[in-house]
């Protein structure tokens, strides 16, 4: 293969994978934007969704058109429930309380998932071909194309939601100041629940797509680790930032895997985005599109 073709392949692959990271990062951003909570269990949300869908498909033989909505419904319920049972009580507490609670939650979910549904890797088969599309020099696996398309659609929908819709404006208002939002009669708790439910939707989609690529077991939750470089690069509370951050992480990962790994024997793929993340924190801590604190003198 010629050099430029190889590069192009790495790039296109990176961009598609990157969009799929963006989708998962979107789950994180939604919660952070509305509730200021940092969700360290995002990857575990994806894993649980993967389990639900894979088990429905495999063990119960449910058709796909039933299994996917079931996964969505389960994750929405999970999001609502989690907010009601755990997170609502942490409102107004120091940020570290929420961080620790979600880290704990992540550990619990990593245990409870395999405990309930079995530790072996479950296939999550989508009715699409494994044969890549060949577009000139590019090889595009259909699952990546599907994942990227779903990501774009949902990033667009949620982006519109926050920017233009009535509820979206209310959520941004809450993110700005909870107390003032309350003074305006906005029911803050209801919007928190909505944010967690929306994260549930995104996680369910992520679970289906990533689950079908990697298979469903406890390792599916590792995809959550990609969220942090994505959101730090893009800005914790920015949907366009999640897109751009995802694209950057996807490309950096692939380029590192393609060009650096052959010399060092592999592994750079996994930490290259983190190097970038730390650099980003040093140079531009609020991310590319992140909300800057407006200060007045």
């Amino acid at each position: 293969m010629v050099e430029w073709q190889f590069t192009l392949l790495l790039l296109s692959n990176g961009l598609l994978i990157g969009l799929m990271y963006s989708l998962i990062a979107l789950g994180f951003v939604l919660v952070y934007k509305a509730t200021d909570a940092i969700n360290f269990a995002q990857g575990e949300f994806v894993m649980i969704a993967g389990f639900v869908v894979a088990v429905a498909l495999g063990a119960y033989g449910a058709p796909l058109w039933l299994a996917v909505p079931l996964g969505l419904a389960a994750m929405v319920a999970f999001g609502f429930g989690l907010e009601r049972v755990m997170l609502r009580r942490l409102i107004g507490r120091p940020i570290i309380a929420v961080v620790m609670a979600t880290i704990g939650l992540a550990a619990i979910l990593r245990g409870v998932g395999p405990l309930t549904w079995g530790a072996e890797t479950k296939p999550l088969v989508l009715p699409i071909s494994d044969e890549p599309f060949i577009l000139g020099p590019l090889f595009v696996p259909p699952i990546q194309l599907l994942g990227a398309s779903v990501s774009i659609v949902f990033l667009g929908v949620f982006g519109w939601f926050f920017l233009k819709s009535r509820k979206g404006i209310a959520m941004r208002a809450i993110a700005d100041s909870q107390q003032v939002a309350m003074a305006m009669g906005i029911n803050v708790e209801r919007y928190f629940a909505l944010a967690w439910a929306m994260t549930g939707v995104v996680s369910a989609l992520g679970g289906v797509i990533w689950g079908s690529m990697l298979g469903v077991d406890v390792h599916l939750s590792l995809v959550g680790f990609k969220v942090f470089p994505v959101v730090i690069l893009g800005g914790l509370d920015s949907i366009p930032g999640a897109i751009l951050g995802g694209l950057i992480v996807g490309v950096v990962e692939n380029v590192a895997a393609g060009y650096v790994d052959p010399y060092v024997g592999g592994g750079t793929k996994d930490f290259a985005p983190y190097v970038l993340m730390i650099l980003a924190l040093m140079i531009r801590p609020y991310g590319i599109f992140g909300k800057r604190i407006i200060e007045r003198v």
Binding site: A173, V180, M184, G185
Partner: peptide
């Protein structure tokens, strides 16, 4: 009954019009 809190609490990251719109949400 609606309270205008002390210290001009606006939603800083929302536009003026979006701020006003949040007032009518009830």
């Amino acid at each position: 009954i609606v309270q205008v809190m002390e210290g001009r609490h606006v939603f800083e990251h929302l536009t003026v019009e979006e701020n006003l719109l949040t007032g009518g949400y009830t």
